[in-house]
Design a protein around this nucleic acid. Structure first.
Length: 874
RNA sequence: GGGAGUAUAGCUCAGCUGGUUCAGAGCACCUGCCUUACAAGCAGGGGGUCACAAGUUCGAACCUUGUUACUCCCACCA
């Protein structure tokens, strides 16, 4: 069979993915095996695959595939997130393009459009994950708003309400004037922005011509001022105590109050208090029983309280009001000012603090439990440093605002009675029942109940994900939840540690009394090579599907993993995929070589081949030890690098070259069979990282017995004991080979010209045959004295000589030897200094001193040898 | 403002409990090779004051303190 000289992933990847699906190899059902479970961080249903997903899902796939090969019942559950704000925004836009205004639609009509849109455009990302090779159990694909998940969320809401952990209250919330909804604290991003600080004059009542100056960044909010505040200890403002001042332009008379909160150093030490539009002012207002005047509409324009500015946008109003203040002579001065302004994570508009009635979850008690399980390592974070971040957040946690003024999401199951009382129940009928019991005679029928208009924060669905995926909320005792929960590993980006990771832990404790996962692997953030975050607006994010087209999924997977240790950002450059592609090609060519060998049953296995096989098998055991340790510590890139070197260096460069027969010659059947077995095992080791090329090669190696099989479920090779002396001796042999090749290279000799090697004294000779083959030597001779007229090198303390047919350049050789001598003498001097130090000899452990003495002896021996060689040349 | 982390070769990173795996790996680079598996390759090679300074120690990339630079998280003084 002819095998192409270049590996072509296109021909291979789709075929094997279809094969895996057809054989249902991704599917898991509970059985007697040990479970291994990962739930996918559900991407937005509106999302398309980006580099962050690639990294994240590659890691999950590596872990799942490895677990599967270790004999576990591996289950990776995929799904998507309904992403209220983002999805609703997209649907609204879509409607707008069709000339439909959301406000002209009823809630039900809107939801119909939204579901249509979701069915049509949603979940592209899951299709894209298949290209990557993700071995998700697609039969289990879920959605945070499908029936089971919807119902689970509703039940949890009711349950927490009944436990008194959910309440409704009027609070200052972060209002997104574009999305027209409240968002949680975590959804506000503060950015430094360059604005102005305006100094306004507030006339003092009853003291004509006298005024106090207030510095503010938001002059448009003066319409909402209900007090001015000074610090009671502020001497320069004592004259204002007990006075009243007039709000500029507005004319309203407001009191001057005193509070320690005011910073004496800032501006003039006078603060205008606008309880409706600033969180700190709100607190001051509560404390001093101030009125609260809301001047904004939900969309960020001014309402009727804005007087002549009513209807204007808040930023347009700011400009206008500054102009008007100036004309009225009430603007003292304007300074440039840099401060932090909060923006909505979803819509990127400036957040408006706003008083409104919202639903909250009490966090204090739930948070304490969630902190404990991370502190005591029931859940381990990789890397561990994220424990700090986690602790800090949980220790300072505030109640979670979970209501959103949107339609796309789980509608809050709270029903209002005509008497303003509220009942909470999963369905209207149940709510009616409760209403009748609690408030007899208030409602005559279920229809009279008015359901809350708001939906729940999307994270209020996703925090249940590891439980609700197995229907563990509705049926807490079902077989699946008992089998798959708790899950094993969670792989996610550190930026959602609060949004998601912490809250899943809370939900796990609350609803399973058990952690939702045992390990959390935090990936880094994928950046471009200039260190910038990948973003649409910068256009610096490569399309992952194009990358896969170009380098193959295996190539991209490997490229990303090689440079992405846990928690480290990944400066992504397309060229790292080349390394992956090249590696796939390298293995492919090893396959071509091996497949070209003809087995001969007449030929007996040579001693050399037998040794080569023994070495390779033990080398594999040795490296497996390392790989297993790396996986235990979640050091995936190191495990991959070790595998890479095992295949490329040890197998291809050393082993295959050692057993490779001369051109056209057959190979003894025993060695060939051993080679195939080793090759297969290597493919198993590599399979979690590079699933496609390894499956292809595994099948091609022994096509006869691979029908209907898959490497996916082959047992993963495990490390075993190996002979350390044997490996050390072989390493010495490798050094001999490298040295001879080096001599050849530096003297410009052809690799085809066979050389002789003379070794002074004894050396472990069992590998001589292999050394002769690999270094192209005609003989290896043992000599008792140094050899004249030869090039020399040392391996350890052993002197080696290679006779030259041509004259050797004595000066050059002497120079080279002299350099080595100087270095060794310096080395010896430092060793002697240590050994001459009594404190060292007495203080250091026996072992360390012995090592130094050995260094001394070796160095002395080497110096003597070098001196003798130099003398001989002279 | 508070906290955390990082700084080792041109790049990305290892370096465990201070001591022969202590100065490493991969990529990149340089030299020579189209040697019938692979130029997406082979063989060989160069390259680092371990950010800076002081200290502890017989001994420091590793421990302590300080300095500098970068990154991230939290807070939000109008």
């Amino acid at each position: 069979m002819e095998i192409a000289s270049k590996y072509d992933p296109h021909a291979v990847e789709d075929r094997w993915y279809a094969y895996w699906l057809e054989k249902k190899l991704f599917h898991s059902e509970p059985d007697t095996r040990e479970p291994y479970t990962i739930v996918i961080p559900p991407p937005n249903v509106t999302g398309v695959l980006h580099m962050g997903h690639m990294l994240n899902n590659t890691i999950q796939d590596v872990l799942v595939r490895r677990a599967r090969m270790l004999g576990k019942n591996a289950c990776w559950v995929p799904g998507t997130d309904h992403a209220s704000i983002a999805t609703e925004a997209k649907v609204v836009n879509m409607l707008k393009e069709r000339g439909i205004d959301k406000r002209s639609l009823s809630r039900d009509e809107f939801m119909k459009y939204a579901w249509e849109w979701k069915e049509e455009h949603g979940g592209i990302i899951l299709k894209q994950l298949r290209k990557l090779g993700a071995s998700c159990d697609w039969d289990r694909t879920s959605f945070t708003m499908d029936d089971i998940r919807y119902e689970s969320v509703i039940r949890v809401f009711c349950d927490l309400y009944n436990k008194g952990l959910i309440y409704r209250g009027v609070r200052m919330v972060n209002w997104d004037p574009q999305a027209l909804t409240a968002v949680s604290d975590e959804e506000v991003i503060y950015k430094e922005s360059h604005g102005k600080l305006y100094y306004l004059r507030y006339m003092i009542e009853g003291e004509p011509g006298k005024y106090a100056i207030v510095a503010t960044t938001r002059p448009e909010t003066i319409m909402g001022d209900t007090a001015m505040c000074v610090n009671p200890t502020d001497e320069k403002n004592v004259h204002l105590h007990g006075k009243k001042v007039v709000v500029p332009l507005v004319g309203r008379v407001i009191p001057v109050i005193e509070d320690e909160y005011v910073d004496v150093e800032f501006g003039t030490g006078c603060l205008k208090v606008t309880p409706a539009h600033d969180i700190n002012d709100y607190n001051l207002g509560m404390k001093h029983h101030l009125d609260s005047i809301d001047i904004f509409n939900d969309n960020g324009t001014l309402n009727d309280n804005g007087g002549k500015y009513a209807g204007m946008d808040r930023f347009a109003c700011r400009k206008q009001i500054v102009k008007d203040l100036e004309e009225a002579g009430l603007l003292e001065k304007v300074e440039d000012y840099t401060n932090n302004v909060g923006y909505s994570e979803r819509t990127n508009v400036v957040i408006e603090p706003k008083l409104s009635a919202q639903w909250f979850v009490k966090m204090t008690d739930i948070a304490a439990k969630a902190l404990e399980v991370v502190e005591d390592n029931t859940i381990q974070f990789h890397p561990e440093k994220f424990k700090n971040t986690y602790r800090h957040w949980l220790e300072n946690i505030k109640d979670w605002c979970i209501s959103r003024q949107l339609w796309w999401g789980q509608r809050i199951p709270a029903y209002y009675l005509p008497n303003k009382e509220v009942v909470v129940a999963p369905t209207r009928e149940e709510a009616y029942k409760i209403a009748c019991e609690k408030f007899p005679g208030v409602v005559a029928s279920a229809d009279q109940l008015v359901q809350d208009e708001d939906v729940l924060d999307t994270w209020f669905s996703s925090w249940l994900w590891p439980i609700s995926l197995f229907d563990g909320i509705r049926n807490p005792d079902n077989e699946e939840i008992r089998y798959y929960y708790p899950t094993n590993d969670l792989v996610t980006a550190p930026d959602i540690i609060f949004f998601w990771v912490a809250r899943m832990i809370m939900a796990g404790e609350e609803y399973r009394h058990e952690v939702p996962f045992k390990h959390v692997y935090f990936t880094g953030i994928v950046r471009d090579k200039l260190g910038r975050k990948m973003s649409k607006s910068l256009g610096n994010s490569p399309d992952p599907i194009m990358l896969i087209e170009k380098y193959g999924a295996d190539g991209v997977r490997m490229g990303m993993l090689l440079t992405a240790p846990a928690g480290n950002d990944l400066p992504f450059d397309e060229s790292i995929c080349e390394q992956g592609r090249n590696f796939a090609n390298k293995i492919w060519n090893a396959l071509r070589l091996v497949k070209g060998w003809e087995p001969s049953t007449d030929l007996k296995q040579s001693a050399e081949n037998s040794l080569a096989v023994q070495w390779m098998e033990q080398r594999m055991a040795q490296v497996l030890e390392e790989i297993e340790r790396d996986f235990d510590n979640y050091r995936l890139s190191e495990a991959l690098m070790a595998s890479y070197k095992l295949v490329w260096d040890d197998f291809c460069s050393w082993y295959l070259e050692m057993v490779k027969p001369a051109y056209g010659q057959p190979l003894d059947a025993e060695t060939l069979a051993a080679t195939l077995t080793i090759f297969e095992k290597l493919m198993c080791i590599l399979h979690p990282f590079m699933p496609f090329v390894t499956e292809e090669i595994w099948h091609t190696l022994r096509p006869c017995c691979r029908e209907d099989q898959s490497i996916m479920v082959e047992p993963m090779p495990r490390s075993v004991d190996y002979d350390h002396q044997f490996m050390a001796d072989f390493a010495t042999a490798q050094e001999l080979i490298t040295n001879v090749r080096g001599l050849r290279n530096s003297k410009g000799l052809s690799p085809k010209e066979a050389l002789e090697l003379h070794i002074k004294g004894g050396h472990p000779a069992q590998f001589d045959g292999l050394v002769m083959k690999m270094a192209n030597l005609s003989c290896i001779a043992t000599i008792s004295d140094k050899l004249d007229g030869a090039l020399s090198f040392m391996v350890g303390t052993t002197e080696c000589f290679v006779p030259m047919s041509q004259n050797i350049n004595k000066d050059e050789e002497i120079k080279k030897l002299q350099e080595e001598l100087t270095y060794t003498e310096g080395f010896l001097a430092s060793v002697m200094k240590k050994l001459g130090n009594e404190k060292f000899v007495n203080g250091a452990p026996e072992k360390v001193v012995a090592i130094e003495r050995k260094k001394q002896a070796d160095a002395e021996q080497k110096i003597a040898a070098l001196k003798a060689q130099i003398d001989a040349l002279k």
